[in-house]
């Protein structure tokens, strides 16, 4: 019982802090708009894919980008928490590490899903047509994505003791995950190496699934996209839990 209320407390803290930091919310709305207007609009003036204009084509990718960045940085932020003594108080609380991890993870998911929903609304101004079916599918994909990437961030962050590794994580984890996912280009006619890499990247399936739901332009069958996203989430949650157990 106290584990449950502890879980709620950890979640409540993250959401409270998130809603209090207006600057973060504003930048989370502005960044994707810049992507859509500048990148999508700029490149879209010369190219289009599968009958959809480029701006619309990358919308699922930008949605993924927003949630990916928010989630993974939220997770990595635990490095900061660990240095602040606030977290010491949480660490002495009579809560299991599993609860600690789950509370943090759910807090991070809520934050990035809120940002995702702002962007879904913004999508209306970029000619994205939603149906109940597509909306539900997109939200499921975003949920899997945010749970997986928050867990990934937490798993890495729990093992770090300073911010020194952040640049490396940006270069070797976040950027490759994003750019090698088909968020900005279609998966057809890729050179051999990129073809392989995109198929190994779990985010490929998430973008593909959302693109299929929103624009009807999917490369893989829906069950494959959903399965890959689900497997990614389960694996990352396991990794995060293990990492929290070993954290000290």
């Amino acid at each position: 019982m106290s584990e449950l209320s502890g879980l709620y407390a950890l979640w409540y803290r993250e959401v409270k802090v998130f809603l209090r930091e207006r600057s973060r919310i504003i930048s989370s709305i502005v960044n994707p708009i810049i992507w859509l207007v500048a990148f999508g609009g700029g490149l879209g003036s010369t190219i289009s894919f599968g009958g959809a204009d480029y701006q619309t084509f990358i919308f699922p990718g930008v949605l993924m980008l927003t949630v990916l960045f928010t989630s993974i940085f939220f997770g990595l932020y635990i490095v900061w928490d660990k240095r602040m003594d606030f977290f010491k108080e949480v660490m002495v609380a009579p809560l299991s590490r599993l609860t600690l991890f789950t509370g943090k993870m759910m807090g991070g998911c809520t934050d990035s899903l809120l940002q995702g929903s702002f962007l879904i609304i913004i999508g209306l101004f970029f000619n994205i047509k939603y149906t109940l079916y597509s909306l539900v599918l997109v939200i499921i994909f975003l949920l899997f994505l945010s749970a997986a990437t928050t867990s990934l961030g937490l798993a890495i962050g729990a093992q770090l003791s300073s911010f020194e590794g952040f640049g490396l994580i940006q270069s070797f984890v976040i950027m490759p995950l994003f750019f090698l996912s088909g968020a900005l280009y279609p998966l057809e006619n890729l050179p051999e190496w990129l073809l392989i890499v995109t198929r190994v990247n779990p985010l490929t399936y998430i973008v593909d699934g959302m693109r299929g739901a929103l624009l009807g332009l999917n490369h893989f069958p829906l069950w494959m996209d959903l399965g890959a996203a689900l497997a990614f989430m389960v694996a990352m949650i396991l990794a995060g839990t293990l990492s929290f157990m070993r954290m000290h």
Partner: peptide, 9 residues
């Protein structure tokens, strides 16, 4: 205080 109260059951 509220969070602490919840975490400590």
């Amino acid at each position: 205080l509220y969070l602490h109260a919840m975490m400590y059951g």
